[in-house]
Design a binder for these strands. Structure first.
Length: 794
RNA sequence: GCCGAAGUGGCGGAACUGGCAGACGCGCCGGACUCAAAAUCCGGUGGCCUUCGGGCCGUGUGGGUUCGAUUCCCACCUUCGGCACCA
């Protein structure tokens, strides 16, 4: 018999699919196909900073299974692909390899396309986009201008993270444990003028996870985002510093403890600190403001200096000493706090260090306020409300909300990104480049390597342009945009990738979006996934889209491990699919990577594991060919094998569609194949063979297509998904489990549909059961119809 | 500290709604084919005991609810992830 040879059948079918344009999905014409079920399947696009590794293979194969499954179930499926080709990952790769970023990036893209084709993924290549192409980034610039007009993109001085290795500012979202997510270098705190997106204005909207347009997001992802946004309710209260004739607002979540305030603290960076003429304070503020992040957080002992000034507590007129201390952060709340050492651990520590008074104002045991003037004796919540009310009447306070979230810093002092379309004019100030002058092309520069100053500024011919407003010579913005700006909207461009008049057509985004199913790493929970949600909220306000969330359903694949540790470039254990495809074939690689375990868990790759899958595919090949060469189908037989085929259809369908579980369907098809191999004479053998081939097609499309053809059929990729016949799922007999006192003692085959009493009678007939009853008195019998009988004795 | 997820054979894992624990695969053991090997096929494989009929134990630990718990409840242990001088 002919051997299973993936090396010949895989290229063959890849060519057939290409020629047939099998996976292209045209957009509906205006007014057409509105009611047709459609599905937008998307996986996070790759950075072309190298070629694909096995993590990508898992991600895209999962998307591929869903794509085939939906297509064959009558859905119109949009399944595009593109490249996140701008930004640090691609640029750093270019620096390492020593070529121009465009050259390296495009070379990697070409290589990835070949890899993707070899894996046989069902991608609509007519919609391919790359972030670095002018056709794409002109619209990134256009969107920037729209945000700018609305005041949602602004330039300001603020504490930012500076990566000394990448020589650029990086976003808070991509600083992990104080290190740059791209290169692992410890970041430094700098106060720099940078571009920001005003994502904080959408903090409350981004916490709306209960809108009807939400499909299904993992609870843990929402939790991570909630923690990141960090919403706290409380009050803002004005404290007065009489000597300086100033009111200082503080934010507190515990206005009920206001009477317990015994001192007042300013962050070292607080603007008021400069006004306090005192060399000791000055020295302390300068020293501590420079230290941030990790260094400041891990400091064991509290430090601070007294300013010599006093702030008045509005609730009782008490004068509280004003200190400067670095445990108060400028970027949270108002950068100033009222300190209540009795009810705040940090304040207590500080008070103990500097011997400041500690006054208890809450009786924790009874949950009431004590030593709190007119509010004494009130329950905590009531007291809190009354205190804020009273402050409000005096104009000294109001309820307030504070967030941990900070605005998204998106300007980068790097070459490989979309230029920010802004011009600085001495007379007109900051002037946006007019829409009709877009795109602002990324210029060539002699040296694109990072030097801490924007490389774009070195091209003076590009840099100096007439001011769009007054015509006088002005200077372009030379920073470029963060790559996450590109990925915040790329999924919208896929629906209309060649549009020359707009980023996309409203009709088409509203037809396809939100993305039906998004798949990608959870490492983007607070970055890309939050940025994209922010973008869509803004785009909806602009009337560009008719929905408020980008991704209806979200799934995070687990990390693939090789050799015991998480795959990462720094560990050097990143393996690509090419050698494995050479050795085992794409179908085996695809099937094994999903067979390894639940797709959302971390998994360890083993070469012996994939050999099990190869054995399965060979067995399938052999068994199906035997059937194909044997007798033709024997009609609609109701045999054990036919029933097995139908239960397998039901199981595979339910697992993929409802349970989103990709490894158990493979087990189910293996079972069917094993049973088919055991009973080749069963009249339902041809049907079972067809079913096995049809069900494995989303996983192993090449061998499935080949076997389908040998079984005398065509174009499995567009053949409707098999349907389980409910009549054949019903069994005529079943194995009745008999328990005595909850322990299984026997199993007997009985006809389905017997009344309970009859089942109990059959159970009692069993000699084994009788041995265990041993004449003891029966207290109770429990019957689970179609399953078991439990006899309970005294 | 706060929030979240998870603990099942030698290994990856299954058991979906409280009803047969260990499907499927890997590995291992035995057998067939072969001069031999590979490939393939067949059988076995949680632990302990056994008079070979079967019995007992077993899903991180300890309790509980229930006729019955991997599944529900309480407490704890361990691992992983998020936040963290956030007022």
């Amino acid at each position: 018999m002919e051997r299973y040879d993936p090396k010949t059948i895989e290229p063959k079918w890849q060519q057939v699919w290409d020629d047939a344009r099998a996976f292209e999905t045209p957009n509906p014409a205006p007014g057409e196909a509105d009611g047709e079920p459609h599905w937008y399947q998307l996986e996070m696009l790759p950075y072309p900073s190298g070629t694909l590794h096995m993590g990508h293979v898992l991600n895209y194969t999962m998307g591929d299974v869903l794509t085939h499954f939906r297509r064959r179930n009558g859905w119109k499926v949009l399944r595009p692909m593109g490249f996140d080709s701008f930004g640090l990952p691609a640029e750093n790769a270019a620096i390492t390899e020593g070529g121009h970023p465009r050259e390296i990036t495009e070379r990697n893209i070409a290589a990835i396309r070949v890899q993707m084709r070899r894996l046989g993924w069902a991608i609509d290549w007519t919609r391919e986009i790359s972030a670095h192409e002018v056709d794409f980034y002109r619209w990134t610039q256009w969107l920037f201008l729209s945000f700018f007009e609305r005041g949602l993109a602004y330039r300001a001085a603020a504490p930012v993270n500076w990566c000394p290795n990448d020589q650029t500012v990086v976003a808070h979202e991509y600083v992990v444990d104080g290190r740059c997510d791209r290169c692992g270098t410890l970041v430094e705190a700098r106060n720099l003028e940078q571009w920001f997106f005003k994502i904080t204005a959408y903090a409350d909207e981004l916490l709306e996870y209960d809108l009807p347009e939400w499909g299904d997001w993992p609870e843990r992802t929402k939790t991570i985002q909630r923690n990141w946004i960090g919403r706290s309710e409380g009050a803002e209260i004005l404290f007065r510093i009489e000597e300086l004739d100033t009111d200082i607002p503080v934010f507190t979540t515990r206005p009920d403890t206001l009477f317990g305030a015994t001192f007042f603290v300013l962050a070292p960076e607080h603007p008021l600190v400069e006004r306090i003429a005192n060399s000791e304070v000055d020295e302390y503020a300068k020293r501590t403001a420079a230290r941030r992040g990790e260094a400041r957080a891990t400091e064991e002992a509290k430090t601070g200096v007294f300013t010599g000034h006093y702030a008045t507590n509005p609730v009782n007129g008490e004068r509280l000493p004003v200190w400067v201390a670095d445990y108060v952060l400028m970027e949270y709340g108002t950068g100033a706090i009222m300190a209540v050492p009795a009810h705040d651990e940090r304040d207590r520590e500080f008070a103990e260090t500097f011997d400041l008074p500690i006054r208890q104002v809450i009786d924790e045991e009874h949950g009431v306020l004590v030593d709190s003037g007119e509010f004494t004796g009130r329950p905590i919540e009531d007291g809190e409300r009354k205190i804020v009310e009273s402050l409000r009447e005096q104009g000294r306070g109001a309820p307030a909300v504070s967030y941990r979230l900070r605005d998204w810093s998106f300007s980068r002092q790097r070459y490989w990104g979309a230029p920010i379309p802004i011009v600085y004019c001495d007379d007109c100030g900051m002037v946006p480049v007019p829409e009709e002058e877009l795109p602002v092309l990324l210029p060539e520069v002699e040296d694109y390597r990072p030097k801490g100053v924007p490389p774009l500024a070195s091209n003076e011919e590009w840099l100096y342009v007439p001011c769009p407003r007054c015509g006088k010579t002005a200077r372009r913005e030379a920073d470029t945009m963060d790559t996450f700006v590109d990925s915040s909207w790329y999924y919208l461009r896929y629906v209309d990738p060649r549009n020359e008049d707009a980023p996309f057509d409203r009709r088409l985004v509203d037809y396809w979006c939100p993305v039906s199913q998004y798949i990608g790493g959870i490492d983007h929970a607070t970055g890309h996934l939050l940025y994209s949600r922010f973008f869509v909220r803004v785009l909806r306000e602009m009337g560009l889209v008719g929905f408020g969330e980008p991704f209806a359903r979200l799934f995070h694949q687990g990390w693939l491990q090789m050799g015991g540790s998480k795959m990462s470039k720094s560990k050097g254990n990143v393996e690509g699919p090419d050698a494995l495809v050479d050795e085992y074939g794409a179908d085996a690689v695809r099937t094994y990577i999903l067979f390894m375990g639940p797709a959302d868990q971390d998994m360890e790759w083993t070469d012996t594991g994939i050999e099990g899958i190869v054995r399965f595919l060979r067995r399938l090949w052999r068994v199906v060919l035997e059937v194909a060469e044997g007798a033709p189908a024997g009609g609609a037989a109701n045999t054990p094998l036919a029933r097995k085929a139908h239960t397998t259809i039901a199981k595979v369908t339910d697992d993929i569609e409802r349970r989103f579980q990709f490894h158990t369907p493979i087990s189910a098809v293996m079972e069917l194949t094993n049973e088919l191999a055991r009973s080749p004479e069963d009249p339902a053998a041809p049907f079972a063979a067809e079913t096995a081939v049809s069900l494995i097609q989303p996983y192993a499309p090449h061998v499935a297509e080949e076997l389908w053809q040998r079984l005398g059929h065509e174009r499995l990729w567009e053949t409707p998904w098999p349907q389980a016949d409910p009549a054949l799922l019903e069994r005529e007999t079943f194995e009745l489990v008999i328990q005595v006192n909850g322990r299984v003692r026997d199993r007997v085959e009985v006809p389905a549909g017997l009344p309970d009493e009859e089942l109990v009678a059959r159970a009692k007939d069993s000699p084994r059961v009788q041995a265990h009853l041993d004449g003891s008195e029966i207290k109770q019998t429990i019957v689970v119809p179609g399953k078991l009988v439990n006899i309970v004795t005294k």
